[in-house]
Write a protein that binds this DNA or RNA. Sequence first.
DNA 1: CCCATCCCCTAA
DNA 2: TAAGTTAGGGGATGGG
Length: 879
Amino acid sequence: MQRLKETYKGIKSNLTMMNFQILDADYTYSEGKPVVRLYGRDESGNSVCCSVPDFEPYFYAKAEPEMAGILQEKFKEHIKRIEVVSRFEPVGYFKNPVSMLKITLYDPKGVPVIRDDVRKMVDEIYETDILFRNRCMVDYGLGGMGWASAEPEAERVTFDVLSNLKITSRKVEPVEILRNAPLRHLAFDIECLPLNGAMPAPETSPIVLISLAFSPDFESKKTLVLVGKNVSMDGEVESCGSEEAMLRRFFEIVREYDPDILVGYNSNSFDVPYIVERIKALNKKGARIDPLMGRDGKPVYYKKFGNTTRVSVMGRIIVDVLPLLRKEFSLKQYTLRNSAKELLGAEKLDIPFLEMEAYWKDNGEKLVKFIEYARRDSELALLFLLKLRLIDKYIALARVSGTLLQDILDGGQTQMVENLILREYMKNNRVLPARPTGEMSDERFDEGEELAGGEVLPPKKGLLENIVILDYKSLYPTIMMAHNLCYTTEVVGERPDEVVKAPSGGVFVSRKVVKGIVPAILEELLNRRQATREKMKTANEEERRVLDATQLALKILLNSFYGYSGYARARLYSLTLASAVTSFGRENILKTKSLIEDEIKGIVLKDGAAFTKDEAKEGENIALSVVYGDTDSVFVNLLDREMTLEEAELVGRKIAKIVTSSLQKPMELVFDSFGRRAIFIAKKRYAVLVWEKSDGKIREKLRVKGMETVRRDWCELTTKTVEKVLELVLKEGKVDEAVELVKNTIDSIRDIDAQKHPELFDKLILTRQYTKKPESYKSRQPHITVVEKLKSRGIIANVGDRIPFVILAGNGLFVERAEDPDFAREKNLPLDVDYYVMKQILPPVERILADFGEHGEKLRAMREKRTQKGQRSLFEFSE
DNA sequence: CCCATCCCCTAA
DNA sequence: TAAGTTAGGGGATGGG
């Protein structure tokens, strides 16, 4: 806080310094020399482009000092100079650094040109694939969405950029400012005209409407719909006369409004590529449209990588909310309609696909409807971003890791982890390897060398009462810290005196010798998280949101290092390190179980406190039994008697304290919750009725893991029935009512008619994700059957979509009887009631009720009767 | 009936 | 140049 205030004071007293938040970065050339450009926005809302001259590209090579002259001579066109430096190699514990060459080039593009040849002449090369803009930011201590303070120079290297403040500075430094600059958001959505009902293709189908939504307003408008023909209409509608004029106007508005964040729904896969291709097609026929959107004055640009499309608009962030929603929320479908309904409680307007052409050609009521439908779509995209605060987390991740926001939105955890490691390696005179190339990366799988994961304790199946749930706080990161597990502590050569040996066999130097770089980073992240959570307590609403996103980002990063170390394509892939982490984890949970069961054994409650048996000497003993555990958790059954929530908490905290005291810091077992009743079905499948205190009252909450209620590949009838059964059994202990409920549920679908009972029909829809191209499937799958059927009807599903389907009555294989629900409903096709009863309702319910004696018997009876012939009458039950 | 394989989705 | 990790249940299918 103190620092923050000073910064603001600084602005007022020193007008020559300039602060801005870094949105994006690239480089260009001035007089043949590379110049990095930082794009951002300042506190008062100006968009800024700061040119940073004189930063030089470089990489490292491990070689004898004598090689310097030879390399310099051989690549003199590219190499500006070579310095002999001391650096540590990336992996391993070393007492001393080795001699390396720091090779500085004239041009960043020179690095890929000479690196392969250089590699052949030296032992190894390092840091040869760090993008120039990232290299610059790392070396200057700057990062994505972080604030920079620049001292503008009188003499400017000016470029043709669109930002309204163009400065040049050789002195750019990071500044701590918590809040974000006032960012501008523009959501967009296009409507194309399907000709004769065919899927629109950019070569033939025109774009007829472009809808826009702004935050903040644009010329006091919240939305605007551009129309690609002449209309006279009031409201936020702009008649453009033609498609060409409309597209030109679109780019003009983007440049004028100058958004920092562009938003769309499925825009990376659809809208942007469509716009780009459509313009190419129009320009070929004589139109003149320049898709200039970037702050560098260049066009939008997209590139396909396998199934994903990457879109780039220089200087701005482009956000496709669809993939973000997929990552963030578990929904059965991610169509705009369903996402809006589930997440915003908003209705999407709709017009029938086949009638679009008629709506467009109409100039009255129907066109108005079409326009409002289009407007709604961009409004929804913007609402997702703002209401659900979709990018707050990503902004925090950018700030904490120093990675550019766009890279985080497009990519994964790898870049963030590498960014953090690179910065810390640099401070410690270590170099980073280049990213491993193609073939080598799958080595692990070919050679059968495997990374073993977490330990799952077999559950005590059936109904249990009084269960204390304990878990390890950030298990893997704390293991790495506790045992000093790191790339930089792995013993590769001579073995020092003090070492740590992992159960998996890996040997690492002790913290007493040297603290590993990764453990140091983790410690820093952990401390910052603690401090951030502390600050939240006194922050105002806006600050609190930023701080909350920050602490979440810190947590995500903490937990990313282990996964990264076991990722075969990582620059620092280390099976030794990853195995050490998991092996300590497995050892730990097993030790925890035996500590609780064989040493603590029981807890005594006396005078409102918990004691071990030894401490208490007398009093009623509560025996302990570990009934389940998965990786970092233990479920302890408190035997012998009923417990109040307070008592259970006392016992839980006591156990946690004893276990924690037996461990290396900062490993910590904590009390998580108290389960009044629980049912364990199998490993990773259970339900617990948790008792929680809120506002002094005890609340009951059903926590279900892995069972059908939380899975998206079962129909709603199943999930709802299973949920009700669990509630009856766990909350009320009414097993007989649960059986009755199942019977009624089965009865309710026996005469199912799609058109007569639409709500019931909807409950029988299953969904599954279409994960790869159809030809890659080795076996027939129901949802793929539907994808094929849809295709034959002119509807194209995309890889990544979740496909809804129902199972139709008839002969033949189940997979072949999967059908599109809309089609089945429209044609009123009969469903396979037997499938739903025998495969969707009975098995999940039986898994829960099977152990309840006669009740289980009743269910088995239901199943057996159905298997016999004459099924119709068998819905009746003989009592 | 058992078993292996493929596929999906979830827990951690 | 796409992508953090493994453990595990359970359905459909086909072969023995």
